[in-house]
Design a protein around this nucleic acid. Sequence first.
DNA 1: AATTGGTTCTGAACCGTTACGGTCCTTTCA
DNA 2: TGAAAGGACCGTAACGGTTCAGAACCAATT
Lengths: 363, 363
Amino acid sequence: MHVRRPATLASLAAELGVSRTTVSNAYNRPDQLSPELRRRVLDTARRLGYPGPDPVARSLRTRKAGAVGLLLTENLSYAFRDPAAIGFLEGLALACEDAGTGLLLVPANPEREDVASVHRAGVDGFVVYSVPDDDPHLAAVLERPVPTVVCDQPDLGTVDRVGIDDRGAMYELAKHLIGLGHRRIGVVCMRLARDRNDGFVTPDRQHAAHFHVQRNRLSGLAEAFSEAGVDWSQVPVAERFDHNMVSGASGAAQVLDRDPQITALICTSDVLALGAMTEAARRGLRVPHDITVTGFDGIRAGEEAGLTTVRQPVLEKGRAAGKLLLDTNERTRPRSVNLATELIIGNTSAAPRGGADERWFGP
Amino acid sequence: MHVRRPATLASLAAELGVSRTTVSNAYNRPDQLSPELRRRVLDTARRLGYPGPDPVARSLRTRKAGAVGLLLTENLSYAFRDPAAIGFLEGLALACEDAGTGLLLVPANPEREDVASVHRAGVDGFVVYSVPDDDPHLAAVLERPVPTVVCDQPDLGTVDRVGIDDRGAMYELAKHLIGLGHRRIGVVCMRLARDRNDGFVTPDRQHAAHFHVQRNRLSGLAEAFSEAGVDWSQVPVAERFDHNMVSGASGAAQVLDRDPQITALICTSDVLALGAMTEAARRGLRVPHDITVTGFDGIRAGEEAGLTTVRQPVLEKGRAAGKLLLDTNERTRPRSVNLATELIIGNTSAAPRGGADERWFGP
DNA sequence: AATTGGTTCTGAACCGTTACGGTCCTTTCA
DNA sequence: TGAAAGGACCGTAACGGTTCAGAACCAATT
């Protein structure tokens, strides 16, 4: 049986006895040829099964892919599991649909150092969301000659950036807890580097953390509590590689095992905090009466639980990143956008029970 | 100032005095050249700022894009707003990350008939998720010479399909309600066609619905209740274009306004059902004592609310679609996969208060 | 009659890469 | 020592388009 090679613009032109230019114009510039000829071209195309100009060949010539790439240092599916990531993506998708641009989720398996996926991505730009600053995928993106926006990353000075003041926001939250009288605290945080460490964190590791967001949140905490006279090096900080409620629970358990006297459990995300609350409940600790628990992000589930947290505009962050990337006329790169956060005092934080500090502030 | 044209594989080869093939091999087939030369190529590339082979040009030549496209007939951001869509996408993303493939979200604004986005998508295949069967974007996808998997669509016979037995599952749910004694019911369903109709639906419109899923769910209901002696044409069916809880609430309100005597409110999705429950509560109707409410999908929020519903494996659906698409062994195409569903009897369904017969004589 | 202007179509030059089928030279082995 | 094998590299031909500067033609204007 004869395997017919698929029709191309050239074969169509040959069949019609016109130039390739004319066929191309039939699709892209209808005003450049007579309506009759255009109809004839399109009809013949249908008859020959020509599916229209090949998008890849077109991209090569026009230097436009019509898509932006999203890099996040997790398995692709994480994008649809984590509430904050989902919010970010929704915002990014909003910006993309405004511009009629596609959104390519680039697979970047953190286990492997395989950056081929970044090299293979046919995109007009990249958004990089919360990856460690030493991620080889990030390095590969920065080498690509396309505009890039990093999000929740340190300011690289060379590419656009969107983020929040993690350090300041956490400092403010810490001040709230300090004001309530908390001095003996524990912390549960997300992964600080690419290597798995489900355990306590040394101050060194905190300081050298490769995740900008986590590093700054911890640093905000350290600053506030140090100012309040707390020896930060004695504060138990449990790190968890996976970001889910189970991790929050086990992290809380580890901290509470180390120091059952703590009056507040500060988590660097709402998901972890919700997990921590289940662990508190398991131990018969009432929140906030027996222990204060706080989060970070302002996700829906946290809101419903009345979590004391820092709300950050995840959707706006995504949208801002997309707009920055797709805004072509702005020639003032690199730009840096900081979004506002809001301290949410819920009902999971209160003064420590019978704490000595309570006396100093009075009712 | 001299605008340096970006380096290409050819210019790099010229600089090095080797052939383009060799430079290409340095990147793609390290075994084809000596390690020293390879190092020299890579070093020179770095020096010249050559970012590695252009992905688009490579795609053109190799006829591989390294990505699959996802078409869903909503604004892009809907993918991150709807729980069922999120689950589907997570499954699809899992399949993609297994294959090291990217996932391109193709913008398909349902308002405009602009299918250019489909034409511009540089992908190796498409997954089409729950679009109306007359959607021009779907037609455009089917014209592209790449493998396609449709999901929650009628079996087209020409491309792979993944789905569930919507009709059978809803029939079973209806039988459950009939068994409880419900005869006087109302329905809230999702959009049935591309035109916005936030109101009641005629049997004709139900029958001609362009959304396969909704058509079959309604048809399953109609069959079961007709068998139970209910005149389906008299059953109020409220359609809502937007799929969210507000729609569920307003749809329920419309149905309840039309017939306050109904004993069960059947919704074609959990999201609508959750909205319907808020409306019931607003009216002081206790669920299930005063009214039964049911959903479809089996989303987390519904589970937490104890919703009576049909659970469908949304994640598995996405994964199956991805696997079908990425499975290169295409001897057996087209394939059709039906996934199992499960009737979940929650605590939002019960026998009508005072029995069905009493209803006929009024309260 | 020459000029102008507009429409319609063409030819050729790219876009940057990889597949294919070699060549050439060095080893290896009987 | 001659033949076969294998490593290293190369030249050519696509891959399927878009773009731009004209050419050819015709009608209207000067």
